[in-house]
Nucleic acid binder design. Structure first.
Length: 528
RNA sequence: GCGCCCGUAGUUCAAUGGAUAGAACGUCAGAUUGCGGAUCUGAAGGUUGCAGGUUCGACUCCUGCCGGGCGCACCA
């Protein structure tokens, strides 16, 4: 990747200058390479001269000057020019030849373009949604669906062995409550049409057994179906009840006990999580003998790390689980897996109807299900809409605007760009182009190539920081350039050589755009 | 009370401490006898909640305040 190359070369230049005694000895900080917004400042840019000014005991401009000269002298020549600017930026400008060659590279690598190896030999699991099986998926608890799904796709593309998992909490009090609700006895709490449906299907009379059966139906007939409609394919559905059946929970509790991390107080058993960074100790077995949610979750995570050998586990949780983060992290740390668990907290969705907030409650039977939304606007639109938002955003979702927004959703803009270039390729018929890439000289052709080669960077950045909203943004930017290219550069023309060159660029663009869409789990129609 | 997250254009949202804060929708004005007009071009629209601070540089980091969401269980 070109970006890594610049980092290496710049680092080398700094070290060379240190050897020559121009710079004093100091540890070279991380070199950041970015794309300047204004193209006058080049294709890539680094602020390293500003960063090391104090260490090098020279002015940033002087350092930038020295570095750019050194970079030009030491080679290899990747850029036509390297310029320095104002406070101390070093700006790099691509050579045409380099860009033109990239088209061939993309055509050669095809769907593998953007495939990285930063996750080589490492296994990662993404666990997401994992909503309690006490009702259908709501808009709120399905928010993490597209995020987790796409994060999994990105990590796979980055070279990790990836698994997507749903943890089914079919054990404990909420199952009992669900049972009572289905039986509609005096302790019933959940309401809604689905409860009426379950009442007919569930024959069990014992409240807990009725709850278990109902949970099973909810998972099989509702949650799995909705996930599938959303385009999510899980590799694993892990049931909490199975962790109890297999004694995994008991084993983990014994392990903690052996380490002297369990104590009894007022009839309950506590885990000394405060020893591992938690703000208080956590109850792990209640005085009535029931194990808490945490007990199951610890067992689940030990299963992930020790049985399944994941090097990294990413959990996507609703922000209401904020209070549980430290407890689980403490257990992970206590059992020797510190640093392997990342938890992404997803802020809440506020559903609005005509500007009015809708309070969601399964207990009151008031909620908007993901299925209703899917009926209204379809999976591509929902996925795109949700993917555009960062996890930290307190998302406002206006139902009355949903239809209108869906009709004008940028996802169609992207799909249209794809369909359009497919149409050109259909028209051209031939699939093997003998292209002279030097003919790709138009400024939009070069801009388009620059955008295409950002794709691996998008993968790398997202695999590192989990900021998935970068991908829809990239898709829009790429589509914009494609539409502009379409306007200004007629592909199929009398000029046969130019036609061939442009067709190859179109094919390369199609490859990248299609990969971007498939990363997002959004369809790439050839016609629309 | 304490902790986490958020406050950016009319609206929904972007922006690894960088250069003139960007898109989309909406609004207004334009473009086709050329490969798909679900497109393209342009304009209007911002004191990034407020006040300080850190630094060459702050939407971004720190402090305080205002407003909102979430959490602080022997519930999951």
């Amino acid at each position: 990747m070109i970006r890594e190359e610049i980092v290496k070369l710049t680092g080398k230049a700094i070290k060379n200058l240190q050897k020559e005694g121009v710079f004093p000895a100091f540890k070279v900080p991380e070199i950041l390479i970015e794309h300047p917004e204004n193209e006058l400042y080049g294709d890539y840019s680094t602020n390293v001269a500003l960063k090391i000014a104090k260490l090098a005991k020279k002015s940033p401009m002087e350092i930038a000057e020295l570095l750019s000269k050194k970079l030009e002298a030491q080679g290899p020549k990747l850029f036509t020019k390297i310029k320095i600017a104002k406070p101390g930026f070093i700006n790099f400008f691509f050579s045409k030849e380099y860009l033109q060659n990239q088209v061939e590279r993309i055509l050669k690598e095809k769907d593998n373009f953007g495939q990285l190896d930063i996750g080589k030999d490492k296994k990662v699991q993404v666990e997401f949604i994992s909503a309690n099986p006490t009702g259908p998926l709501t808009v709120g608890n399905a928010r993490g669906g597209p995020l987790g799904d796409v994060l999994g796709n990105v990590l796979k593309k980055a070279g990790f062995k990836t698994e997507k998992a749903y943890y089914v909490n079919n054990y404990g009090m909420q199952i009992l409550t669900l049972g009572h609700s289905v039986l509609k006895d005096s302790q019933a709490k959940y309401k809604g049409d689905y409860i009426n449906y379950l009442q007919k299907k569930v024959k069990e009379k014992d409240p807990y057994k009725a709850g278990e059966k109902a949970a099973k139906i909810i998972i099989e007939e509702m949650i799995k179906k909705t996930s599938k409609r959303l385009g999510i394919k899980y590799d694993q559905w892990v049931k909490e009840s199975d962790l109890y059946k297999s004694k995994a929970v008991d084993r983990v509790l014994k392990l903690l006990e052996k380490k002297g991390l369990i104590y009894e107080k007022e009839g309950a058993k506590f885990f000394k999580s405060s020893k591992f960074g938690d703000e208080r100790d956590r109850v792990i077995i209640k005085s009535d003998g029931w194990k808490t949610y945490l007990a199951g979750d610890i067992a689940f995570h030990i299963y992930k790390f020790e049985k399944k050998k994941f090097d990294k586990v990413i959990n996507i949780w609703g922000a209401d689980h904020y209070g549980d983060v430290l407890g689980l992290q403490a257990a992970v740390k206590a059992l020797g897996h510190e640093g392997k668990l990342d938890i992404i907290l997803l802020q809440f969705v506020t559903v609005l109807e005509k500007g009015e907030k809708k309070r969601m409650s399964k207990r009151k039977g008031v909620f908007v299900t993901m299925d209703e939304l899917l009926d209204k606007v379809g999976p591509d639109v929902i996925r795109f809409l949700l993917l555009q938002k960062s996890a930290d955003t307190h998302l406002n979702f206006d139902l009355s605007l949903a239809k209108e927004q869906s009709e004008n959703n940028p996802v169609y803009y992207i799909q249209y760009a794809h369909a359009r270039i497919c149409s050109i390729l259909r028209k051209a018929k031939s699939k093997n182009f003998k292209a002279d890439y030097e003919l790709l000289n138009h400024s939009l052709e070069l801009s388009l190539i620059k955008e295409l080669i950002k794709f691996p960077e998008v993968i790398e950045d997202t695999a590192k920081d989990y900021q998935v909203q970068r991908i829809p943004k990239y898709a829009i930017d790429l589509s914009t350039l494609l539409h502009q290219f379409y306007r200004d550069c007629k592909v199929i023309s009398e000029d046969k050589a130019l036609t061939q060159a442009r067709l190859s660029l179109v094919l390369a663009s199609k490859t990248v755009l299609k990969n971007t869409l498939s990363l997002m789990g959004i369809s790439a129609p050839e016609r629309m």
